[in-house]
Amino acid sequence: MEQSKVIRKKDLTLLERMYIPEILKGMRITIGQMFKPKFTVQYPEDKFVPSASFRGRPVLVEENGIERCVACGLCSRVCPALAIEVQASETVENKERYPEKFEINMLRCILCGFCEEVCPEEAIIMSNEYELVFENQKDALFAKDKLLVPIEKVQARLDFLRSHR
């Protein structure tokens, strides 16, 4: 059986062991960094625009004036935070069923994206909105009026999902 070899790293040279020249080298790097461009985004003035892979708040896709959702309830079932409430009802449209009430409690939602993954109709997807601040619990209940978003606005995310299927 082959013996495991002792790996001996190279010893530091005398110059390196004197510390001071190495410290000066390090200081040159830190001082150099001071004059590089900064990464900070000055938030309230400039806003970070997320790419399509970003998981912001979940929204319902609105196509031709009505939601795509067929109220199958899968999203509500899969949601680990129990944030979604769906009540189904009948409609004259082709899809026959629609959500009479669709409510996401944004205080519970953990933005995991499971609802988007499970939805058979691509009806609920994660948008790129991240400013979720509420002053009371009622404001955090997003009903259909806040959830419905025209398809043009979320097209980037839909394309992203298609290309990564």
Partner: peptide, 10 residues
């Protein structure tokens, strides 16, 4: 401020 600048922050 200096530490921020060194770390590419503001």
């Amino acid at each position: 401020r200096v530490s921020a600048f060194i770390q590419n922050r503001i």
